[in-house]
Design a binder for these strands. Sequence first.
DNA 1: TTCGATTGCATAACGCTGTTCAGTCAGTTA
DNA 2: TAACTGACTGAACAGCGTTATGCAATCGAA
Lengths: 207, 207
Amino acid sequence: MESQPAAKRRLRQREEARRAILEGTESLLVEDGYEGFSMRRLAERCGYTAPTVYYYFGDKQGLLDALLEERMAGLLQRLRRVPASEDPLERIRHLFLAFVRFGIKNPTHYRLLMTPRGDRGERPPSAEKCEAIFLEPMHELAEAGRLRVADDEAARQVALVTLHGLISLRGAGSPSEMAKNLNEIAVDVMLAGLIAPEATTAPGARA
Amino acid sequence: MESQPAAKRRLRQREEARRAILEGTESLLVEDGYEGFSMRRLAERCGYTAPTVYYYFGDKQGLLDALLEERMAGLLQRLRRVPASEDPLERIRHLFLAFVRFGIKNPTHYRLLMTPRGDRGERPPSAEKCEAIFLEPMHELAEAGRLRVADDEAARQVALVTLHGLISLRGAGSPSEMAKNLNEIAVDVMLAGLIAPEATTAPGARA
DNA sequence: TTCGATTGCATAACGCTGTTCAGTCAGTTA
DNA sequence: TAACTGACTGAACAGCGTTATGCAATCGAA
């Protein structure tokens, strides 16, 4: 009965276990949120025991990291699918809105994305990739002299402030009812302050 | 030996205990952050035991609320001390920057300020007061027709997004080094997109 | 002045958490 | 068949927020 080379089969079973655990993690997070998640509840749900989860993922943070990297591919895909319209301003607008929508729809994943790793201040590689995608049209705009701030890095940080504010304000209990299209409004306000419209050359940039 | 009416003395001792516990709470929060805080460590630090803290403050959230209300008076004072310059835009700029500075300097207090209470989605009364202070010059600008969004409430929400983004992005581990004056840059960008310059004088230049 | 009630506080415990240790048991390999 | 290895578990540790119980002091009133 050794249709598979036995080593391969073991590897496949290993991958199956990992997948079961990750799926349990995701469903538990979705159902009960980050606060309601615990290793024991996960263990009970996915059929293994807690030490097995540790065997596969090291610790809780490692487990969440692994889940994040999996699901992050979706966001990256969505971001890359945003068409490269002729005006980079339009493109960046769509990128930002897509990012905010993702963050609001997946608050737990976003939280994992932004929370630096426990010991060192490192962030998951997916986060870097996302922001790299933002940086590209920003750079275009900078070269066209349309940025009203010092450089594209400053622009990226300002933008990130707005996006992060939008996402975490919604996620962590909005004060009252918020404007339905606050996403668009806030992003447009930020872009209006950050980037000059297309036609003009390079008017009085201010410090 | 009853120089005090005995009832008053009891009350004073009660207040002393409360103060000791609150001071222990604050110092522990400052030293070890929100994650490092625990009722047991607080108990050990302030000389009482954990149930005594519960006796005085109900539960952990109640304790943190009490601390917040105390310290919030400082922020409100600082905000009210911002002079009412002739251009409400300038005033609002200073208000925003003061708020951001407070949030960054007191990340734990800010977190308590913004995190809605456990059960119902209520926020501490201080938070409402702060935002009321923001709303006042916003309303002025709206009446002067200088707002580039629908109404002053929308403007307030957009502004809050930027402020919250600035504070929580710094607090929760900034991605890499951030621009030193990102506060000013981001606030100025937001204001530039949100508010038109004073109508009478030449447009385009600010500060 | 004595007595019951209230106040301030502590000891001990419950149920939960993340995590680790020591061991078991099946499957592979020599 | 014997040794080994990888997957897995039961039990435990230390710490968490919280609560039940109880004790000593103090108080208001008889």
